[in-house]
Design a protein around this nucleic acid. Sequence first.
DNA 1: CAAACTAGTGCCTAATTGCCACCAGGGACC
DNA 2: GGTCCCTGGTGGCAATTAGGCACTAGTTTG
Lengths: 128, 128
Amino acid sequence: MIRDVYRKMCPCRDLLDMVASKWTALAIGALEEGPKRFGELKRRLEGISQKMLTQTLRTLERDGLVTRTVYPSVPLRVEYELTELGRSVTEPLAALRSWAQQNYESVAEARETFDNAEPLGLEPATAR
Amino acid sequence: MIRDVYRKMCPCRDLLDMVASKWTALAIGALEEGPKRFGELKRRLEGISQKMLTQTLRTLERDGLVTRTVYPSVPLRVEYELTELGRSVTEPLAALRSWAQQNYESVAEARETFDNAEPLGLEPATAR
DNA sequence: CAAACTAGTGCCTAATTGCCACCAGGGACC
DNA sequence: GGTCCCTGGTGGCAATTAGGCACTAGTTTG
């Protein structure tokens, strides 16, 4: 198969990196609720800077996952909406967000165990 | 709900960032096929550096998604294997990898359209 | 007349990623 | 017995990327 994310030069590797990047899962998830304006998205994606939001949305627009529509109304309105292609990736991303929310405590627990075990020197049997 | 990936201070946001980071989806996908040694993973994840592989695996180990077992055999063998928790995230990640492979061409097409439309100045109706 | 809202852009710094060299402890070659 | 290879790493430095903060510009509101 030509398309293999494990191949270095396969363009679909870049695509995986894109959908799996920091703000993409959140942005697409927010747009899953319906079309949203720039400001709405900024408020929803708590902690994102204007710059990163602009950049994320541009990338998504370029890749055909969202459309950007400008309404030259009084204070100027820009709406972002998922395309058909964008909607096709919502399920895996929603599953990922859901997993993060559901399994956070297990991970936090594992981290504590790991961080407490580490400074107490090498393990007896399987030394690091 | 306390656990909300859209909240800035929610720890599950970090977890989402972790599983959605550059090499995680590939590493977990590779380990889905069964336990693997460091070198095997390095060959499978074409293009990854030792450093990034070590870092990725350490993070996954710390977060309780993989186990690291050292066999002090002749040339020294280190095996990585998914934990129960690790296996719980394989499905969404596999779906994401699969999506990237299947929808690459649509995205490439959208990119071309976007890149060709852009330099030709502002669109007549909806100026940028 | 100043403030805030709209959707951004630009500069500069901080964090992340990647490249390359190096390490250690053996085995095999010659 | 010196040198090369294997194993699974670590550490330094450079380049890329992310983020904070300031600024724009037109309109509206106090």
